[in-house]
Design a protein around this nucleic acid. Sequence first.
RNA 1: GUGGGUAUAGCGUAGUUGGUUAACGCGUCAGUUUGUGGCACUGAAGAUCAUCGGUUCGAAUCCGAUUAUCCACCCCA
Length: 430
Amino acid sequence: MITRNKGAEDVMPSESYIWQTVERAAANVAQLYGFSEIRFPTFEKTELFVRSVGETTDVVQKEMWTVKGRESTYTLRPEGTAGCMRAVLQNGLLNESMPQKVYYQISAFRHENVQKGRLWEFHQFGAEMVGAADPSADAEVIAFARELLDTLGLSEARLHINSIGCPECRRAYYDKLREYFAPYREQLCSTCQSRFDKNPMRIIDCKSPEDKAIAKDAPVITDYLCDECREHFDTLRSLLDGMGIAYEVDPRIVRGLDYYTRTVFEFISDSIGAQSTICGGGRYDGLISEMGGPQTPALGFAMGIERVILAMKAVGYDFGEPSVCDLYIASMGADESRRAAVIANSLRREGGFRVETELCGRGFKAQLKYANKIKAKYLLVIGQTELETGKASIKNMKTGEQTPVDLNSGFNDTFMNTYVADRVSAELPD
RNA sequence: GUGGGUAUAGCGUAGUUGGUUAACGCGUCAGUUUGUGGCACUGAAGAUCAUCGGUUCGAAUCCGAUUAUCCACCCCA
């Protein structure tokens, strides 16, 4: 037997309705915030990710799925922003009125060590806003993510924000950091020693206890922001305060994607183990120009669907029941089952009901058991008598009550009336 | 890329110091007299014990490799 390879996941019907719950909620909230769906290819020229995500990042250096095509080298998208911005730029959305707001639900690919909540192929909901430089845009995007998580029952996810400044203030900050770490350089862990030159900001985020101790009093970026970046960050914070969105300023959020500028943020869940970041995003004012477009401010976020679902399960979110059968038609004999199929089809088409008939040749009793098993709300039996006389009855499987029906006239109406009447009486208080 | 754990029917598990036909629960299917479900009872199907190799008279059980999975690091969503 050929089996699924690692790092990928099958979603069975018993799970897929959970995914649908998340996807529908995401689309609904996106609409509330004025975001429209955008779709773009699963793969792009490798060059796009190298330039936008950043040549020195782990994602580009060791996690990309790259294939050599005949004309070029292509990569399965490791994230959504780069391809999304390429599409926005290439299709002239920047010539429309600003801001442009788009969202997407995609799978993305990274070649990492597999763990729960971290797969080779994983799924993201992402949203991007283009053309707005004002901190109010940052606030709206964060509010959007917050609202979506709340809708999904994940109010427990904590918001961490930080500003990593613009390239200018970051350069100055890097110098300060190197100055600070220089005396300890030999004591740092090996990865941090290489970070010293490449990206000293990452040392602050190191998990090693020794490095943590060394970094305890390191300068924080927020103290070295230029006036404009500082004001941007302060305004964002007061906007979040005003909207009643709780956050924690976390100078250790650095983000592993090079394109971020100024605002970066993460939502962290405590309920799903080590892969606790369920949403991450920020501003990337330099990305579009880096890709060859005009200097255009932009920002966005992405949510990991697998992690979101893990967190929802962990907090006991009620996903409800998967779709239920409205009517099961039991039948005995070939003519009877033909009739059952006709009735079923007409009820589906005219009434929009989910109707099932016997398709596996079960005996009568087994059909009833099956009807019970699939939680059919109503039962209709078609035997020889019913076929000959046209007289049958609809049984409410919950109460056992039976309502007489005429198969030859007005059956659909009778069924619908019974259905509605039972539902209303069930809703009435005693 | 580094370190560690796990691998037995569709699912969840048992299997004692290696010793005959690998057990149980759930699920599936069929029955418990002829046309009305849920409960209960009876029975059936379903496992090359992850794969390959080794040790042994004999391996689900011990050893090695491979694969998958989980945990931590790293990184990220």
